[in-house]
């Protein structure tokens, strides 16, 4: 597909999706106030931010060209507010992709989301960055959607999701795991893999999944869309803004080495951070 075609396809797809969601939710009683959501995903290389009102999209800015989320994120947020003629104070909740993903990318998104939610006195919800990818792929109820991010050294971040009555259910927890062990967990299931990083595991995948029932989601579903993130976060319970941290799914190397040498270390050590 040419880039333009992909854009056209995405737009059409988003429209159908909105329609589906709206029809699906029309049975539920309508809330009086239309919930406005700011959604932020900087967990990997793409950057996506969106404003939603009552589960429909007002504006979205999704790019894959940002070299630095720290530079690009706030201008992108500022832009979608302008396009939507909304003031930051008018939103009700901030939904952020909480990880797994790039540590630095996650911290830029999560810190921004926390600071916005705290200083505007709004709700904060974190949603798995892997679930955001799964939410873009609509398949039958038997298929396990498996979004995958490369975590280097033959490891991946991956989880398993299924659709159940228009609800995305987490069937296999998000985890940091070797690609081999991931495939072992998928034996006997009908699997649909999602993610651009899978190319790096191509040979291994062909070998480990030989004879299994698996497919790949279309290439454009590898890019997280903050619209989907916002939809996923719309019904979640709000979390504590000050305590919220990214789900790195992995200790730092320094900490895991230290814990190896100090098995009871964490309890004995006492608080790592002191306030004065």
């Amino acid at each position: 597909m040419k880039t333009r075609d992909i854009f056209l396809f995405c737009e059409m797809y988003a429209w159908v999706y909105v329609k589906l969601i709206k029809e699906g939710s029309s049975v539920k009683k309508r809330t009086e106030h239309n919930m406005k959501i700011l959604a932020i995903d900087t967990s990997n290389r793409p950057l996506s931010v969106a404003l939603l009102e009552d589960q429909s999209l007002l504006a979205e800015n999704t790019t894959t060209v940002s070299k630095n989320h720290s530079v690009a994120l706030m201008p992108a947020i500022s832009e979608i507010f302008e396009q939507s003629h909304l003031k930051p104070t008018e939103i009700d909740r901030v939904v952020v992709a909480k990880g797994p993903g790039s540590y630095t990318g996650l911290r830029i998104g999560v810190t921004t989301a926390k600071a916005l939610a705290y200083s505007l006195d709004k709700e904060l919800v974190g949603v798995s960055s892997l679930a955001v990818l799964a939410a873009a792929v609509h398949v039958d109820h038997e298929t396990l959607l498996v979004p995958v991010f490369d975590a280097r050294r033959d490891n991946v971040f991956a989880g398993g999701y299924v659709w159940d009555n228009d609800q995305l259910i987490n069937a296999l927890p998000d985890q940091h795991i070797s690609f081999k062990d991931l495939c072992a967990q998928l034996v006997g299931k009908k699997v649909c893999f999602i993610g651009a990083d899978l190319v790096k595991f191509k040979d291994e995948l062909l070998e480990l999944m030989a004879g299994q029932d698996y497919s790949f989601a279309p290439a454009d579903s590898a890019i997280p869309r903050a619209f989907n993130l916002g939809l996923l976060g719309a019904s979640e319970k709000p979390q504590s803004v000050s305590d919220f941290v990214p789900k790195y799914l992995r200790l730092t190397q320094a900490e895991s080495q230290w814990l190896e040498k100090n098995p009871q270390g964490k309890e004995k050590h006492g608080p790592y951070v002191k306030k004065y």
Partner: peptide
Amino acid sequence: SAAKAVAF
């Protein structure tokens, strides 16, 4: 990131 968010 926090300072920019609060300023915005």
